[in-house]
Amino acid sequence: MTTQPIIESGMTFGPFPEGHCFHIEKSEVYRKVKVGVKMVEFLLLKIRDGHPPIVWMVEARSSTPKPQPQPNFDAFIDEMRQKFTNALSLGLAACLKRHEDADAELPEAFKGLNLSVTSFQLILVINHHKDAWCIPLRDALQKALRSTIKTWALGPAAVLVINDGMAQSHGLILANAGDGV
């Protein structure tokens, strides 16, 4: 069994194995708190042999401002920062059943997570973004998220900015499914 694919920003994410994807942006948990709370698209649980589980928090974009100092760019980075910190908070709050709808809609695999050892990966996927442009954008986003990375003891590569090609090679989007499916 797999979940329905998630179509965002001209990219088709998934389908993923049943019970491993939480479409947080369309969830009841989020709907009830969404005013003033920006959110990523979905959470994807990856279970790896011999390693702690990892939750990918994925935000999709079709374009981004150039990585140069300008109000537009700073605003974009701040918006992404808010989305990822909110996703981390709401994802954890849902796992801890602090919201009454969480128990009903959170996949079983998420409910059984040992949160003290679970890793979190914050991934911004930008469609048609050049490889070289991902690096300064990741650096800027990582800097903006530094306090979150430190306080939650996230890994040194917890923040990634990738394009559709990289997302495809790591199984986030299916081959030949990248263009506005």
């Binding site: 990966q121 690096i135 917890a158 790591h170």
Partner: peptide, 23 residues
């Protein structure tokens, strides 16, 4: 624009390795 060059290509390769390790 920024040129296609070995310095940038190497930084991209290093970044791709980092993404691969993380994912």
């Amino acid at each position: 624009g920024m040129p296609d060059n070995p310095i940038i290509n190497e930084s991209i390769e290093l970044y791709k390795k980092e993404v691969k390790l993380a994912l």
